[in-house]
Every structure is written in C-alpha cells, then in structure tokens.
Design a binder for these strands. Structure first.
Lengths: 349, 349
DNA sequence: GACTGTTGCGAAAACGTTTTCGTGTTAAAA
DNA sequence: TTTTAACACGAAAACGTTTTCGCAACAGTC
C-alpha cells in the first residue's frame, strides 16, 4: 500500500527543492527544460496528483458546493441534484449533499457542518419545519460570513439571496384553466396548508383560474391538508380525506392536486367510487415525478423542470463564486423563474 | 460581510499566542482559568468554528465519504444515499456525491477528482459501461493508494473489497417459486443480458425455481434485453419487445421481471392484450421503487431494502476508516448479503 | 576588469489548525 | 538562600500546496 506521493517526496528523490518541483510541474519558465523533464517524468511515473485539501486551504476555495434538501428519495429533488451535479462537474466543482429530512435542527446542523470551510456556497430548499417555525437565522448568519446561498423551489421572500423558483401561481392557473376549458364546472383542489408557500401560490392560481372562467370558488371544494403528515407511509389516511371530499361533493368533475401523491390518490379514490377518468372526472397533478407517467391512466401534470432548476441554481451560485469581487458595486440578487409546462396525458380529455 | 474568524485573529485581539487560544478552546489544563474564560467568551461572541479544511490537512482525514452511483434519479439509488447519509451523519461524516451516469469515463474522472485528498473512502455501484468493458484499473489504483472502497449492488467478484449485495439469486428464486405455487405453468422472465451481474443471477434464480417446481424452462419465455438502451425515454421500444413475447407465447400465465420498469410495462402490455391481472397473468417485479406501490394493480415485488444497503455500506466503510491500523493482521474484506423480501400486493393471487 | 542581465534554483511565507517542547515566573521545599 | 516543582504560556513544526523574492552562477557588454 503506497501512500499518495507528495511534492516533498519527489523533491527528496530528485534532490531538488519543493519549489522547483512545483514549478516544474506547472511548466514554469523559471525551470530549465532538463529539470522539467526529469520532474515531470518522475511525477507521471508515480502518478502524482496535487492534494485537494492543501489546495483548498491555500486558495481558501474548496471548489465544492453544498446542497441541502429536505429529502432525497423524491423525484423532484433527485432531479434537481442531477442538474446541480451536471453543471457543477462541468465547471470543476464537487457536490456535497446534506439531508434535512424536513427537520429544522438537522438543517441547521448540516449547514453548520459544511459552512466551516468545507464548501464555497450553498444550494438549498427549505425544510417544512423551518418554514413553519419561520426561524431563518442560520441562512442569514451563513450569508453574513460571506458564503453565498441559492435557494430553490421553497424560498422565502424576506431573505436576500439568489433564488430559482417555478411560477407556481401561473402553473396552477394554467392547469385549472385547462380543466375549465374542458367544461369542468365543479373543480376541486387538493392542496396543503398555506404555510407551504408553493401550496399557497398554487391555491391562488386555482382561484384565479376559476374566477376568470366565471366560476365561483366554493370552500367545500378546497381540501387543505397538513403537509407535515407523512402520507406516503399512511396512504389510508390520505384516501379517507379525499374520499370524504368526493362524497360530500358528488358533482365534482375536475380535480387539481398540488402534488403527485395527492393526484394519484384522487384518481384511485375516484375509481373506487365508480367514476371514470377522464370521462367523469379529469385530474391534473403538479410535479416532476415518475408516478404520473406510469399511472393508469397516465396523469396529466404541470412539469416543474426540476433538472433545469438544479442547473440554473448551480450556474447562479458558481457565477457568484467566480465573480470578481473588485467590483464592489452593491451585491445584486436574482430570482430566476422557471416556466412550468403542462404535460397532457390520459387523465384529461 | 465579516470573514470567518480564525485562531490567529483571536490571538491578536487578546494579545496571546495562537497556541494559547487553541488550547484554551479545547480546555487544556495548561491554560489558566482566567485566560480560558477570556478566550472562550471571545470565541463565542465571534462564533468561532475551527476550519474544517485546515483540520483535514492536519489530520490527513477529511471525515467525508464519497459515493459514486450511476444515476441519482432512481429510487433504488436515492434510497441507498439516504441510508449512507443517515449513518455517515450520525458518525460525524459528510457525503459527497458523484454521478457516473452509467459511463466509464465519468466514473473514472469522478473518482480521480475525489481521490486526491477530498475524501477518506468510497462507496460505489459500478456503471454499466464499466461492467461491459471490464476495465477495473481505477478501483485497484484507488485501493492501492490506501483508500478503501465499499461496493454495493453491482459488484465484481474479482475485486478485493468490502461489498454489500442483495441475494439476487435467492430473491428471484423465491419470487418465481411464488408464481409456481400459484399454479402458473408458463412463467416468462424479462431480464437483462448477462453482463449485468444482477440480471444474470436473477435469471439463474428463475431457472432454479422452475426446475424445483418441475417445470422445464423454455428459451422462448426468456426475454433478455439490452440494458444499455434507455427504455425510460423510449418506452414504445420496450413495449414492442414485450408485446412480441406475449404474442408468440399465448399461454403465459406468470411474469417475473428483473426491474420495476419491465414489470410495469409487462402489466401494461398484458392489459392491452386483454389479459386480466392477476386472474390471467400474475406479475412480480424486482426493485425498491415507488412505482410498484402506486401501480394499478399494485405490483408484487422483491424488495431490496436499499436504505439498509446504504446504511450497511456506510458502517462498513467507516469501521474500516476508524480501525486501528496497528493491528497489521492481513486486511480482511467482508461481503454482507442483505436478505430480500417479497412484498405481496395485487399483481399476484 | 567592472557592470549588467539572464538563467535556474531555493528559502520562506502563507493558508488554519494541533501538539510537542522549551522557558520564564512564581511558590514551595530544603 | 538555593533548589525544585508547578504553572502558564509561546515558539515552532507539521499537514501539502503555490508564489514571491532573493541569490548564486554565468554570459555578455563596455
């Protein structure tokens, strides 16, 4: 087991100084061709590679970006990571992943763990618990120490940083508009409580689409679910909630759900109750997931272009990291809005 | 924007030496209580945290582990990551993710990028291209430099390292046995070409289950697909292949598919051809995915316990990293086999 | 022969830590 | 008073780089 070879070892072997080795390897004009050849040959033979950690320390730059997400077993988030990794790698960066597991304290711990020199900047999506508690000190502290943050999807208006979001309002509005155009008269929405910003925005989109379609929204048709509850593990609870919705509103002919699971479950319940999709009830979901594509019938959804979000976030962050800080002209933050698109499949006419 | 405070700055402010600050913060007995208090108070005020990079350099230990996977937008792999992250975090490690995208060269590049000091060890699953080319020099080189590797799922017998695998053979055999027990007489398998080790093993399990059930395997019922082809993007091709299988074998009454996509598509095609599931044809998949659970009918699958694989791999790696290397008693490698379990849902009787 | 310029290389600092060892001061023991 | 021991702290090395600067040796110019 041979240890990794260092400049010092090469220097000792060849009886030159460390500086000479370093310069020879970087092809400095200071070094004679003879010496260069000797050193380079030796380095190649022993497969020398500069130690990243030493470089990071010297350059005060790790070329690594941290991404903190609430959950990784989730199509949306894993696609975002893919996007981040893609551009990060292309631009010479590594990606270090932290999972908050939707918990405030894990989010804080993860960020503190990485903020002490391990990375150059963050890309993150805020955990539900943090959103609820509205405690954002860790974001502000991190930024005040000169570490840039790019937030995506779940963001907070009050925080000053780059953001990549989807036009939740417009996406939802278009989806519901589609239902209205298809002659749906009683369109229900299955959404989350309002503290989840995306849920709130999508609900607003729903309301506006209805109004523009000349339909008066009815409170009975709006099902707001507690999003902290883990429905994936307790599908039956979700089913009951939705069944209740259908049973007390027999005339529902359209459903807009703010995520994949809600939409799928809605279809399942509807089918159980004897409705045909899309003949009796049309359903649209909101997601970037794989379930929709393979569902029966395949689910029409609002696509969020998760990978593109990841790519955009990574580019934003790296741009900021590599920007020349001589130009001290008041730091500017951007919010990039990714357009959603409606992927029409079989659950709508 | 205040820079992160360092020992040196604290030392200068308080007019003591760097050593004293360092010792005071670690509560060394060498330092007087007075000085300790002074230093600790100051450090707290300025929110001092030791720089991880400097520590890594000093300790020649990064407390970071690298995980290289072929694809992240994939339930199995993201669950593995979750498992890895869980125990890594618990044991004080960070996780850095590299995606090979099933490509040999990206796998090599990613590993080289991380092997130069950025991490302490690897957890990885081999890309398809690497498996095909059978070029494993990068694994051997990495290990010969003293960096441990733990492989999971897609492994190579010839390589000496810790491994975490699923009992593909047994899992497949049990699944097919279940079909046999359910009186299926013409059981087809949809699998991959043999260079994918897991595909091969699962096929063997299928064969043995048939033989034990007194059924003679028929070549016509074995569909081996080229796994490098991206079926997720070209579902129609996959459908045609499977449709061909059904059409030339009208008496098929059971299907065992080595992954989720194949199984789901088989169900879809079968339904299209007028078969009822599970009445006419029973289907079992192999996976840890989410599609199976939400399919209609819900798919019976062999669960791989992906998260557990990740946890096991992480523990194996960290154990090795933290093992006292004084005991030079011939390094031992383990292969941990995770038991699969059959999750029975609606696609079987 | 004295100056200038070029070439080729090494010493040392710096990045931020931890840790070993040395040392000056003071108090206790002889 | 002298010796010893305890105490409190600082200097310096080390981890592996890069880079600035200084300097010796030599060649060329006047």
């Amino acid at each position: 087991m041979k240890r990794k070879v260092t400049l010092k070892q090469i220097a000792r072997e060849l009886d030159v100084s460390i500086s000479t080795v370093s310069k020879a390897l970087r092809n400095s004009a200071e070094i004679s061709d003879d010496t260069k050849q000797k050193v380079q040959a030796f380095a190649k033979l022993y497969n020398y590679r500069p130690n990243n950690i030493a470089l990071s320390l010297k350059n005060r730059k790790t070329n690594t970006i941290g991404i903190i997400i609430p959950e990784i077993v989730h199509h949306f988030f894993s696609k975002v990571i893919r996007g981040v990794e893609l551009v990060a790698n292309k631009r010479g960066y590594n990606v270090i992943v932290g999972l908050s597991n939707e918990s405030f304290s894990k989010e804080v711990i993860n960020m503190e763990m990485l903020a002490n020199g391990s990375i150059d900047g963050f890309i993150l999506s805020i955990s539900k618990e943090t959103l609820q508690q509205q405690d954002y000190h860790h974001f502000n502290e991190t930024m005040s120490q000169g570490m840039p943050i790019v937030m995506f999807d779940r963001v907070i208006p009050e925080i000053n940083c780059d953001k990549v979001i989807v036009d939740d309002f417009k996406g939802a509005k278009n989806a519901v508009k589609k239902l209205v155009d298809q002659q749906c008269k009683n369109i229900a929405i299955i959404t989350t409580k309002d503290y989840v910003s995306v849920g709130k925005l999508r609900t607003q989109g729903y309301l506006e689409a209805l109004e523009e379609g000349g339909i008066t929204p009815k409170a009975k048709l709006i099902l707001k679910l507690e999003d902290t509850f883990n429905f994936e593990e307790h599908l039956d609870v979700l089913e009951k909630e939705i069944e209740q919705l259908f049973k007390s509103n027999k005339k529902i002919d359209g459903v807009f759900a703010v995520n994949e699971l809600y939409a799928l479950t809605a279809m399942k319940v509807a089918r159980k109750l004897g409705f045909k999709i899309p003949e009796d009830i049309q359903v649209i979901g909101f997601t970037d997931g794989v379930l929709s594509k393979h569902a029966t019938p395949a689910l029409t959804t609002v696509s969020q272009h998760a990978q593109q979000m990841g790519e955009t976030a990574a580019n934003l962050l790296i741009d900021k990291l590599e920007k020349d800080f001589n130009e001290e002209e008041e730091e500017q933050f951007q919010t990039v809005v990714i357009e959603t698109s409606l992927v029409e499949r079989e659950s709508t006419k």
